[in-house]
Design a binder for these strands. Structure first.
Length: 454
RNA sequence: UCCCCGAUAGCUCAGCUGGUAGAGCAAAUGGCUGUUAACCAUUGGGUCGUAGGUUCGAGUCCUACUCGGGGAGCCA
């Protein structure tokens, strides 16, 4: 079926033509003399298209009364300038075909619904302004991510989702097994002949490609079995992980900062209606904070950050001190203090995983976290330890079986190079860019403790 | 996993110190010469999250559980 997108119709270029469009009815208003107004949305843009029907309009079955909220229709009619307020053009319907009706039990009413309620109807919330806007922004961001790295000559790499690495340095993992539930489990009888898990990160695998192809990036799902119940955590989420040979920590930070700025700019340019919508409805400061992102990110070492926190006139629940983790309250203080994004680098080795490069001071590693206002940590990365002896010593320190990671340490045995990379939580980026407060609202089908269905 | 808050009509909520339920919106019907979360009128709609307990009597008090929200931990 040939039909025009509402986005293109509202651009006004089709005015004066007889066209066909298709979509879902948001609402209908009737008036006497056979006049009715249908608000039609097809997901191509935030705005609805107004369809006017009168006594001349033909229907494939029944009548205007059956064109209810939620119904799917296709409409043929004349695209005209609208005499009414609120829209430049509208369709004077000649024919309306009801493709699929929606009864009075259709859950989405023409009123505001709470996000909590919409989470319970994950399969239908896509029909709302909020969730269709999120979908368009996710799409735009994913496309821009590929374009950004392709323009820089990075290779798009697919790392495995099933992994045997039982210790990638991040959180609890989901086990993968083909054996029936409740059977006497033995690894020998299982599908892979060894324990297998869903990946928590493609980083280690990405390093093998970076150390052959130069600069690569992965963009795919990651899984964490942590029992985390917060508006910032998911059990299944999407992660972008660039990995670059010949990059040191400063190059890594430059890339991360430029990437975040480029993506924010792209959304401001590519989805202005959506950003205006989110600013109006969810966070009045959103537009302003996205614009402010073009200013240089504040960069401070972990040691400086601790100094700032120790001097702060703030009653922290966790006392800041050199060698301790930065807690949420500390991150919030730092981003509020500088009124923008902050990159913290050179963390104590004791709070970071084995693969990060040890500094000359013998105490810190070349790690960096990008912290955003409202969101907290959006990027975590580091320069990787490329010196074999130091890496092996660190692995032993962390209690990691070096034999299981022979393939990883081989990269240091043969033609080792300085290299760096980071991981960006895609949903946290979408949260930052939309102003949505709960991460469960920025992924199509959220998975978290106690929920894997619709 | 820990702390706090919540669960009453399809949705959002009210329901006081215990006396068996109410509003707005939605829906259905009717009215209204172009509306724009249209408007006006009428009607229908509820084992008050689940299971126990206290009481003559529980939406209301107590306990446990389930689910949801906020904060924390862990992290992207």
């Amino acid at each position: 079926m040939q039909y025009k997108k509402i986005k293109d119709i509202l651009n006004g270029q089709l005015t004066g033509n007889i066209i066909t469009c298709a979509g879902w009815v948001r609402t209908r208003r009737d008036s006497k003399a056979g006049f009715s107004f249908i608000e039609l949305n097809d997901g191509s843009c935030l705005k609805n298209l107004q369809i006017i029907t009168d006594s001349q309009t033909e229907y494939n079955k029944n009548s205007i009364k059956d064109i209810t909220t939620g119904s799917a229709v296709w409409v043929t009619g004349m695209c005209e300038k609208s005499p009414g307020q609120g829209q430049a053009c509208e369709i004077k319907a000649q024919k309306i075909f009801l493709l699929g009706s929606a009864g009075s039990d259709y859950p989405l009413q023409k009123k505001n619904h709470t996000l909590e309620f919409l989470r319970e109807i994950t399969h239908l919330r896509t029909r709302t302004n909020t969730f269709s806007s999120i979908a368009r922004i996710r799409n735009l961001l994913a496309f821009e991510i590929h374009q950004y790295f392709q323009n820089k000559g990075f290779l798009y790499l697919q790392t495995p989702i099933i992994t045997a690495s039982d210790c990638e340095g991040a959180g609890a993992m989901f086990r993968v097994s083909s054996l029936p539930f409740g059977s006497d489990y033995s690894v020998q009888n299982d599908f892979f002949g060894q324990e297998a898990f869903l990946t928590v990160s493609g980083q280690l695998e990405a390093e093998t490609w970076a150390c052959a192809l130069g600069q690569v990036y992965t963009f795919g799902p990651a899984f964490r079995a942590e029992n985390s119940n917060t508006p910032r955590h998911l059990a299944e989420f999407w992660m972008l992980e660039p990995e670059m040979a010949f990059y040191e920590l400063e190059d890594n930070m430059n890339l991360a900062e430029d990437l975040v700025k480029t993506l924010c700019r792209a959304v401001l340019a590519g989805a202005p209606d959506e950003i205006a919508f989110f600013t109006e409805r969810y966070d009045k400061t959103l537009f302003e904070s996205l614009n402010k992102i073009s200013m240089p990110f504040c960069r401070i070492s972990y040691t400086e950050a601790i100094n700032i926190l120790e001097k702060a006139d703030e009653n922290f629940e966790f006392k800041p001190g050199w060698g301790t983790e930065l807690h949420t309250e500390h991150e919030k203080y730092l981003t509020a203090h500088t009124a923008g994004p902050v990159i913290v680098f050179d963390f104590p080795a004791s709070v970071k995983p084995f693969y990060m490069r040890c500094s000359e001071d013998g105490k810190t590693v070349r790690a960096m976290d990008v912290l955003l206002p409202r969101i907290g940590e959006i990027i975590g990365g580091s320069q990787r330890e490329e010196r074999l002896e130091i890496l092996l010593a660190r692995m032993q320190e962390c209690g990691i079986n070096t034999e299981h990671y022979r393939w990883y340490t081989d990269l240091r045995r043969y033609g080792t190079v300085p290299h760096s990379g980071f991981g960006l939580g895609f949903e946290r980026l979408v949260q930052f860019i939309t102003g949505m407060q709960n991460i469960r609202d920025v992924i199509p089908f959220p998975r978290h403790p106690g929920r894997a269905g619709f």
